[in-house]
Amino acid sequence: MNVEQHHSTWVIILSFFISFILAIMPLPDWALSWRPDWVALVLIYWCIALPQRVGIATGWFVGIILDVLNDTLLGQHALAFSLIGYISVKIYRKMRLFPRWQQAIVVFALIASAKLLGVLIHSLFGSPEMNQPLFYPALTSLLLWPWLFIILRDMRRTYRVS
């Protein structure tokens, strides 16, 4: 690994770090169920931009950290995020060609199915799940995707992450 690549790894780590901060930031009660899935958004972006470097393993690792932060079953987010990583790496060529709104719809589908998987795991392990609206986070993620895409792309270009 040369110096430049090492440098660029830090950009990826920093972006995930910020996404963790946004994921546990205290919000007013009404906004809680609308919180977008920041970590998944950042993960999907890097999977599409650098499928050789970010993928299933990164998704799994990031998921474990989120499990600890959210105090969920160890492996719950890891499972969902390694799946997200796999699908995004698999369709990255198509995603790059899609217009921004079409990308956003794919992102919506990915995050919504990850949430659904979370509920499934919850009910499998017998802990009661609150009747919180599932698709709100996916919806806000959809709306935020274009802006996040631009920000992360600019970041990638300035620091020449490849």
Partner: peptide, 13 residues
């Protein structure tokens, strides 16, 4: 790779 990580998650859970 996906299968390995899925199994790892399930085992952890």
């Amino acid at each position: 790779r996906l299968i390995v990580f899925l199994f790892a998650s399930i085992a952890l859970m």
